[in-house]
Amino acid sequence: MSAVPPGAIEGRRWSDGAWIRVTIEGPTIAAVEPADGPDRVDPADDWIGPAFWDIQTNGRLGVSFSDPTLTPEQVRQIVLAQDAIGTARCCPTLITAPADAMRSGVSAIASCCEADPEVAHRVVGIHLEGPFLSPDDGYRGAHPIEAIRDPDWDLFQSLQDASGGRVVLLTLAPERPGAIDLIKKVVGSGVVVAIGHSAADPETIRAAVDAGARLSTHLGNGIVATLPRHPNPIWTQAADDRLAASLIADGHHLSDDVLRVLVRAKTPARVILVSDASPLAGLPPGTYGRWAVEESGRVVVAGTPYLAGANRPLSLGVDRLIRIVGLPPIEAISCASARPALLLGRPEPAIAPGEPADLIRFRLPGDRFELVETLVLGQPTPAGPETASPPPAQASR
C-alpha cells in the first residue's frame, strides 16, 4: 500500500469492503477515491464507516442532563466525550423530573448549542424520556414517581420553547389520560413520539401507533420483571411493523436470546441501537448517591436489582449484533447510524464528497467489532479504553 498523505485516511469501505482513500478538508469530506490494498481480508485491516448516532444518552462522568444545576460547560463536557466512543451525533436525554428542573436542563443544552458550534453539530436534538410515564413499579424504572404526571401539551410546549425548538423525540406511556391526543399534537409539531415505560394493553398501543407513535423506547426494558405470557406490551410492540425499536444491547439489559428474538421480530431495518448511558457512564465501580456501578459494569438503583441506565458504548452493541445475532457488520453499524438518522428525518449518513467528516475507523478481528478511531468534523479521537472492554457474559433483568 502507498503512503497515506496528510489529511486522508485509508481503509476498506464499510458497505462493500473496497479499499478507499477519504480526503478531508476542514470539517468536510473532500474526496473519496479508490485505494490500493490486498484482496484478501485480514483481521488487521482498517475499515471506514459512518460515525454513530445515539438518540438516548442521559449523561456521563457523573453529570446528568436532568440535573437542575446543569451548566452549559457540563453539557459541552458530556457531548464532546462522545468522540472517544464512536458517537458523532447524539440526543441528550432528560428523564422525569419536576417541570422547572426539566426546563432548566433543556435551557442549558440550548445555551451550549448556541454558544459552541462544535456542540451544536453533535447535538441532533433533545430526547424527553418523561415525565408522562407509567407510575407503576417496574414500568417506571428509575424515574422518580413524585415527578411523573399526566400528558400536558402546555408543559411539553414550554419545554420545547425553553430548548429553542430542539426537542426531537418524546417517550411517553400511551395509557396515561390524554396521551393519545398529545401524541397527535406532538407528531403534528414535527417531533417523533415513542412508547416507553408503559403498561399499556394491546388496544392502547395500537391506538398510539394509529395516532403517530413510531418508536418503542428500549423495547424489553422499562417493564415489570414478571409478565403474562400473552398478551403483554413487548409482544404487541414487537409485532407492529409500524414501530421501530430501540434496543440496549449492552449484555445487561437484554439476554442473548431476547436480543436475537427482538432483532428478528423487528428486522434490522427497524432496529436502533441506543446506549441509554447513565450519568455514571465512564465512572469506576462504586455507590454514587441513589445509584451504583457494579463490578460487572451494571448501573443500578443502589441496593436493588433495578437497572438505572447503562455504562457501555454503542460500539459494544454493534459488536453484540455481529457476534450474538449474526448480523453482517454493515447491518449492525446501520442500526447505530442510518436507522436513528432516518427515524429523526435526517439524511442517511454517507461517505461522500461534501458530507461532514463524521467517520469511524474500525477492525473486525475474529468477527468482533473493534473501534479504532472516531472523526467528528474531521477531528480524530482515538477510541477510549471502555470501547475495548468485552461485554459481560450474563445478562440481568
Results as ranks from 00 to 15, higher is better:
148 I>G: 05
132 F>H: 07
171 T>A: 00
175 E>A: 02
116 D>P: 15
116 D>R: 12
142 A>H: 02
155 L>M: 15
170 L>N: 04
168 V>K: 11
164 G>C: 03
118 E>P: 00
161 D>T: 04
117 P>N: 07
117 P>E: 06
116 D>S: 14
137 D>Y: 10
134 S>I: 02
142 A>C: 06
184 K>N: 13
110 A>Y: 13
149 R>S: 14
136 D>S: 15
178 G>Y: 07
115 A>T: 08
130 G>A: 13
181 D>C: 05
162 A>V: 00
153 W>G: 14
123 V>R: 01
172 L>G: 03
179 A>F: 00
123 V>Q: 01
124 V>G: 04
119 V>L: 10
124 V>A: 10
112 C>G: 01
111 S>E: 04
144 P>F: 02
143 H>G: 03
140 R>H: 15
123 V>F: 11
186 V>Q: 02
164 G>S: 09
177 P>G: 08
168 V>Q: 13
169 L>D: 06
125 G>E: 13
126 I>D: 11
182 L>A: 06
113 C>V: 01
168 V>I: 10
148 I>D: 05
163 S>L: 10
124 V>S: 12
170 L>I: 03
173 A>P: 05
169 L>G: 03
139 Y>G: 09
144 P>C: 01
113 C>A: 00
133 L>W: 11
170 L>D: 02
182 L>F: 07
180 I>C: 06
182 L>I: 06
114 E>V: 09
173 A>G: 13
179 A>V: 00
114 E>R: 05
152 D>F: 05
175 E>M: 02
141 G>P: 12
144 P>I: 00
144 P>Y: 02
160 Q>L: 15
126 I>C: 07
164 G>H: 06
185 K>P: 00
136 D>E: 14
156 F>I: 03
151 P>G: 08
137 D>M: 05
